[in-house]
Amino acid sequence: MNKIPDNRAWWLVLPVFLLVAFSALIPLMTVVNYSVQDIFGPGQAYYVGTEWFKEVLADERLRDSLVRQFVFSGFVLLIQIPLGIGVALMMPRSGIKGSLCLILIAIPLLIPWNVVGTIWQIFARGDIGLFGWGINQLGIDYNYTGDTLDAWLTVLLMDVWHWTPLVALLCYSGLRAIPEAFYQAAEIDRASKWAVFRYIQLPRLKSVLIIAVLLRFMDSFMIYIEPFVLTGGGPGSSTTFLSQTLTTMAIGQFDLGRAAAFSLIYFLIVLLISWLFFTAITHADKEK
């Protein structure tokens, strides 16, 4: 649709602008303000320039949790995107069965994140949880509170359980948008199942998949409450991700300057990557 140039449209956007400015700009400015000062108490703040940034970038603990975060987000994408596409391909295309599948698959998305943690905390326990008990019963020594690898696998499994439905639903809606004629043409050509997927379904899923990757990357990069409830970041700090490190610093230790500098770096990483994705999306739109 051709849009009409009209600057009066700003009046319609103004409420959103003010609201988001209030809840995003003011806090962000506060963070910037903190990040360049050393604060001992009310009225006792000293300008320290880029000191905090240098310190944060050199901090071993933060670098570790950044690396952990990237590894985690990488695995999340590697597992959830193919799995989500697979599930979407298997879902019935319409009718009551379609709606029912849709609702059942959406259930994990509707559960508050701390309850997701609680569910897995119970489910994966060796004594009272079906999953942990089952694994132990198979003769494999499994204990997510004591063993680093087990804790990692449990957090990853929990995230796959929690968020693959989102990828599946996005792909499902993308698949439903493909006109029936495409499939009929493929049938006349006697295209194999793989060819149908590769040359009809996958290209049509491109834009949906970009969004799925974007959302999964962002949200896995901000993960906090689920591993916090499940493992508490342990054993040791093996499942402590960026948000938890930051929260401990800001609320737990009240280390304002350092936490603020850390926040800004964190935000900038997310923003940079989201900008890359956003450009990719608009390019994909143009090609269409």
Partner: peptide
């Protein structure tokens, strides 16, 4: 894009300023 960038912002970043605000 600015609006969307707020969807991308980690809530942990805004925790302390929100509390004070």
């Amino acid at each position: 894009f600015w609006l969307l960038s707020n969807r991308m912002a980690p809530p942990a970043v805004f925790l302390l300023p929100f509390f004070q605000l």
